[in-house]
Nucleic acid binder design. Sequence first.
RNA 1: GGCGCGGUACCCAAGUGGUAAGGGAGAGGUCUGCAAAACCUUUAUGCGCCGGUUCGAUUCCGGCCCGCGCCUCCA
Length: 491
Amino acid sequence: MIRLFNTLSGQIEVLAPADASSFRMYACGPTVYDYGHIGNFRTFCHVDVLRRALLLEGLKLRHVMNITDVDDKIIRNAAQAGVPISEYTKKFERAFFEDLDALTVAHPEVIARATENISTMVRLIQRLAAQGYAYRTEDGSWYFRISRFPEYGKLSKKDLSGMADGARVDVDEYEKDSARDFALWKAPKPGEHFWQTELGPGRPGWHIECSAMAMEYLGDTLDLHAGGEDLMFPHHENEIAQSECATHHTFARHWFHVRFLLVEGRKMSKSEGNFFTLRDLLLKGYKASAIRMLLISVPYRQQLNFTFEGLAGETAAVDRLRTFHQRMMSAPRATETNRELLAETEVCLRGFRAGLENDLNTAEARAAIFDLVRAGNIAADAGAVSEENAAVILETLREFDSVFAVLEDRDSAITKFALDWAEQEGRLDQAAPEVIAQQGLSDERIQALVEERTQAKRSRNFARADQIRNDLAGKGILIEDSKDGVRWRRK
RNA sequence: GGCGCGGUACCCAAGUGGUAAGGGAGAGGUCUGCAAAACCUUUAUGCGCCGGUUCGAUUCCGGCCCGCGCCUCCA
């Protein structure tokens, strides 16, 4: 049973679906106006961890994520690029999913695009209007009347009663009744793309899309709603207001918010020069698996300080796990089962599960797995790993990886993908030279050099052997000799 | 100003009223032609500061200092 912090109640609660047949969750997705940055992906990775942990609990999932494919930035950027917004958003939506795949983030069961659900939003707004929660302004926009919803602020714990209506109204807003009232439907400005609907011409406000689509695909009450911490207010607060006023039911039973990350101790921002997209890091030669590991290793409610030193550390940590995984698959088997190791494995598995169940404490969960790595290595060094031991350890690693998803080495292919993309986009100058050099070497070429080195060693020509090894090392290829033969891998 | 989170070794970080997990980095060792990988040993009498409660506090309470986040569309 997973215990998880609920922003709404401010407490840690046991997470269970209202209806046992499926766990219904909604996670706010991206606005597809640019490439995603590592801050975005920290949130998506942690939602992915939640998703995977729920599956591990044996729950059936129905997970919906929206794609915001119309908003001010999109309209602006598409106009600048001189392309229709659909063409503009398609490009970044594709890039977004490519990035999710690189980070092994599983896709939700349902992807809901705002532009494909306009009529659902219109109906929701009409429902609100019919009950007096929405009003139309002179320019043809529709707003939500916050004063009609006394519980407004219950998620973000804001007391808005002290804020007098109309105390400070932006001059460019059309006569809203209150400064806090938010747009449900925006009348088009000249030249803007719009939908002709029963509400009049225009496009949806941002908040309404999540309410409308969440309820369309999941019903009036969700088991859980997720997003970055910044969305808590006003976005999620507004979603609650719209949804609960329309249906008079609880909108989401549990609210899950992922904290922002810092980069080198500072808030990530373009002006600070510490703003990184996933693709930036891949071109610098950092492995996708290490990035995922770093993003999820600090528990979701904790601020993560993303540093390059930390990233290098996680690269080593992932390597260590993979090396251990390989070793457990191939290590010579002892005839007798190591009871002590069996017991240690059990303790580690329990520790792993306990960590996850404890408010998704990924740091605690992964510590248990590293305990297993040590125990397994010690036993393997002593030749005391039986078939049964190996099987149980491998099963534990499988369970670990069903959540962490870092053991399979797809890094080289992902880096190659990023390089191909950079080439197409004319951004190859952003790639680190070593990365380009390494990718220029095919597996076959490396294999040939490794064999040449082995021959050189056999004839005790260590100078030549070391030269090959050093050359390859300079291109990020590591050679490891072992009793079972020579292994090589891309650093 | 309002609301919230945090300050644990060189870095990241878990954690508990009874004496500090884990990862990385560093140092020494085993192994190796040399490396790498792996393993062993080692690195906080100490958990921001000051008081208090307690047999005992890093863990509870109070005060202070510092950092961070949100407070109109940024995950």
